[in-house]
Design a protein around this nucleic acid. Structure first.
Length: 200
DNA sequence: GGTATGATTGACT
DNA sequence: GTCAATCATACCA
């Protein structure tokens, strides 16, 4: 299914140690990192944090068949089907068994754009990866990726190289509980966000 | 066994 | 702005 080779020329993956920390910190620090799946992807510009004590989190009621990966070791993917139609990609964080994860909501496409356009059947780069379902479709994410290590193929997760961009925070999107937690994070001013952030 | 509900998107009025 | 698509999971009987 992949159309581009991996990129061994690029720097080291973020490893499990990066994710074995507070999920909110990880969500913020993931901004600017580069996510590639089979060599296709871009720079993370929007994330959301979820943890087990959070009523909006899938892990709130404990482990189930669907969210099992969330309770596994950090540094792995948690993939679930949303609204019966879309796949959404998360990175498991914190200590193993604690059920916290970062939802990756938007990327700035940089690598393999042609493949993403083909998968998404549309050419506007602003809409290629602006939203968790769109991002998963563009990167070819499916349940097959659930529980897979982010430090091994097909994933490549590369640390931010340049200076940290300004970060904006706001309420998470699409949830009905704990809406007051400002655990959605984005690169301020990015044109590739899934939605604008409410004005501070 | 049945039924309600989404961490969404795209099409349409 | 509204709303249908579409299905695995969760929850109840």
């Amino acid at each position: 299914m992949s159309s581009a080779p991996p990129r061994p020329d690029l720097p080291t993956n973020l490893d499990a140690g990066f994710f074995a920390r507070d999920v909110v910190d990880v969500a913020r620090e993931l901004l600017g990192a580069t996510l590639l799946v089979d060599g296709i992807g871009g720079v993370i510009v929007e994330t959301e944090a979820y943890d087990q004590h959070d009523p909006a989190s899938h892990s709130f009621s404990g482990p189930t068949r669907r969210n099992g990966a969330m309770f596994g070791p950090p540094g792995r993917a948690y993939v679930y089907r949303s609204y019966g139609i879309h796949w959404c990609l998360n990175f498991v964080c914190g200590e193993a068994g604690h059920g916290s994860a970062v939802l990756v909501r938007a990327l700035e496409p940089t690598t393999g754009i042609g493949t993403m356009v083909a998968r998404r059947k549309l050419s506007d780069p602003k809409a290629l990866c602006a939203g968790p379902g769109r991002l998963a479709q563009a990167l070819g994410i499916t349940i097959d990726h659930d529980g897979r290590s982010l430090a091994a193929p097909p994933f490549q997760l590369l640390p931010r190289t340049g200076p940290a961009a300004a970060i904006i925070a706001g309420p998470r999107i699409g949830i009905s509980k704990a809406v007051d937690h400002p655990w959605r994070f984005g690169v301020a001013g990015s044109r590739f966000l899934s939605r604008p952030f409410p004005k501070a």
